[in-house]
Simulated assay, not measured.
Amino acid sequence: MSLQINYIALLLVVLILLGVLGNNHSITISATILLLMQQTFLAKYIPFMEKYGLSIGIIILTIGVLSPIVSGKVQLPNLAAFFHWKMLLSIVVGIVVAWFGGRGITLMGSEPLLLTGLLTGTIIGVAFFGGVPVGPLIAAGILSMLIGKF
């Protein structure tokens, strides 16, 4: 009997360790769920997650972003607030990030090999630099940098 190494499982274990060491729950939980799925009867649902996981994640993220507005913790601005330079800049940054995201999806579809580099960079950013792998939060980070420069 030969020892066959499951490199994907090993990668997931490494990601779990990086998540724990980097104190990043999103990496730890995600890699743990995928490892459990891969190693159990849930493996049959991995193609579903591959196909719909990003959409499901965006829906959950959007719910999280809109919840403070719905709960009343964040008030909707009046019309005049939309003409403040920070608000106009936030709209522009939101548009630019959404445009970049659309181009990124196109790039990953046309050159899937680059996905490995993108995932590696995202994991490093999340595990060691306190990053979060989501678009709207990146837009908010860019916006905060731009506002801080003026």
Rank of each mutant, 00 (worst) to 15 (best):
K86I: 02
K73C: 09
N78E: 15
S90T: 13
V97F: 00
I91L: 05
M87T: 12
A80V: 12
L54V: 13
V92L: 14
I58S: 14
Q75S: 14
L88A: 08
P68R: 03
L61E: 10
I59A: 15
W85L: 05
P68D: 07
G57W: 00
M87K: 09
L61R: 03
G64L: 09
L89W: 00
A98P: 01
S55A: 13
V70E: 03
L89H: 03
K51I: 05
I91M: 11
L89G: 02
L89A: 04
L61M: 14
S90W: 01
G57M: 03
L88C: 07
A98I: 07
G64V: 05
V65F: 06
V74T: 15
I95W: 06
I69R: 10
G94H: 02
V92G: 05
L79F: 08
F83G: 04
S71H: 05
L61S: 11
I63D: 12
G72C: 04
L54Y: 13
V92I: 15
I59C: 12
I60H: 14
V97R: 00
V74H: 13
W85N: 03
I91A: 07
L54Q: 06
I63K: 10
V93Y: 00
W85V: 08
G53V: 03
I56Y: 07
I91N: 01
L79R: 04
H84D: 09
G72M: 06
S55K: 10
A80T: 11
L89Y: 00
I58Q: 15
A81H: 11
V70L: 10
V65Y: 01
L79V: 11
S71W: 04
I91D: 03
I63S: 13
F83R: 07
L66V: 12
G94P: 00
L76C: 08
V96D: 02
I58C: 15
G53F: 01
M87A: 15
G94F: 01
A80G: 04
V74R: 15
I59K: 03
W85G: 02
G94N: 06
V97P: 00
F82D: 05
V92F: 02
S55H: 13
I60F: 15
V92P: 01
I69A: 07
I59E: 09
V96W: 04
Y52L: 10
S55R: 08
P68V: 07
G72H: 02
P77Y: 02
V65G: 05
M87R: 04
K51C: 01
L79S: 05
I59M: 11
W85S: 11
F82V: 02
S90M: 00
L61H: 06
I58D: 13
A81D: 15
K73Y: 11
W85H: 07
G94I: 07
F83K: 14
G94E: 04
I95N: 03
M87G: 06
L66A: 12
V65W: 01
I63H: 09
G57Q: 05
W99T: 03
W99I: 03
G94M: 08
N78Y: 08
I91K: 02
V70P: 04
V96L: 11
H84W: 05
L66I: 08
G72L: 07
T62A: 15
I91P: 00
L76F: 14
L66F: 13
V70R: 07
G72D: 04
I59L: 13
V65M: 12
I56V: 15
